[in-house]
């Protein structure tokens, strides 16, 4: 059976690519330290020597639209083109192409349905920065096949936080029952407190540093129970109007497991939203 060699959760700041590749007067003052932190985080994936990546993210109204909106969707295709014209325009992101691991997609879909998750699927999925940003930061050579998993954190009505945790646990179980001997890393990206298109956007810090502090504590200690006791669909409006993306972190806590402390934790307080990086090594293999 396959082994989950690393579980990695982070934010997906779309400005990293431009900040890290800019030079001279265009290079923002926070870029060098950001690059240093990202490269240290990247090493936590490299060290796990993965063969396949399960990538959890959320389409930001790019391909998925309100006339037919899935709550949870698994891509099943041999290839995935990536990034959209408005991401090129606004963030300077490049066009990318990924290979798909179709048999693992099929396994997640069949197994997920049998576990009670009515997963949608897509045989032609263009993926966006919620998945391309973690590839750019953690696997810039883009040499591994992926299985994209999209969640709806964006278009109400949303699944409740508990459901994200449950799906994370199911993904862990399903990857570990994939009849294959490859090494799988599960990588998911979400948000801490974040405001988009509202009065608290683009401040000098994230809109709710106190929420961010608690969130980092819940994630790094694997405190799913504590997190679920405070986080609801209603409460997530308070830290910022795009903070429902935190539920993708909750999904990743489900992948890592209840009470499972992260083996690597780092944060970077930036304008607009805080960056946060977490890695777990389920079997200790990648720890050094």
């Amino acid at each position: 059976m396959a082994e989950v060699v690393a579980v990695i959760a982070s934010t997906h700041h779309p400005f990293y690519y431009r900040a890290s590749t800019s030079t001279g007067e265009d290079r923002p003052p926070f870029a060098d330290e950001w690059v240093r932190k990202v490269e240290a985080f990247r090493e936590t994936l490299t060290r796990a020597r993965p063969d396949v990546l399960v990538m959890v993210g959320s389409d930001h109204f790019h391909q998925l639209w309100l006339d037919n909106m899935p709550q949870f969707l698994v891509g099943k295709a041999p290839f995935y083109d990536a990034n959209f014209s408005n991401e090129e325009r606004e963030f300077g992101l490049p066009r990318m192409l990924f290979k798909g691991q179709e048999d693992l997609s099929a396994h997640l879909l069949r197994g997920g349905l049998d576990l009670g998750f009515d997963l949608a699927f897509s045989n032609e999925l263009r993926i966006d920065h919620s998945i391309t940003c973690p590839i750019i930061t953690r696997r810039p050579q883009n040499d591994l096949p992926i299985v994209p998993v999209y969640t709806n954190i964006f278009a109400p009505p949303l699944p409740r936080p508990q459901r994200f945790v449950q799906l994370g646990k199911a993904i862990r179980e399903l990857v570990e029952s994939w009849p294959d001997d490859r090494r799988v890393a599960v990588i998911g990206t979400g948000h801490l407190s974040l405001e988009l298109g509202g009065p608290r956007q683009f401040g000098p810090h994230g809109p709710d540093p106190e929420f961010d502090r608690k969130a980092v504590e819940w994630i790094s200690t694997g405190d799913i129970e504590g997190c679920l006791s405070e986080v609801t669909l209603d409460s997530l409006w308070n830290p910022g109007n795009a903070t429902h993306g935190f539920m993708d972190f909750m999904l990743m806590m489900g992948v890592a497991g209840e009470g499972r402390k992260a083996d690597y934790v780092d944060t970077y307080d930036l304008f607009h939203t805080m960056e946060a990086y977490f890695t777990w090594y389920p079997n200790g293999g990648g720890r050094s």
Binding site: F61, N86, F154, L196, G197, G198
Partner: peptide, 12 residues
């Protein structure tokens, strides 16, 4: 209106 859609278009 969805604030992400409004923001993205008006930035453009």
């Amino acid at each position: 209106a969805h604030p992400f859609l409004t923001l993205t278009l008006f930035i453009a």
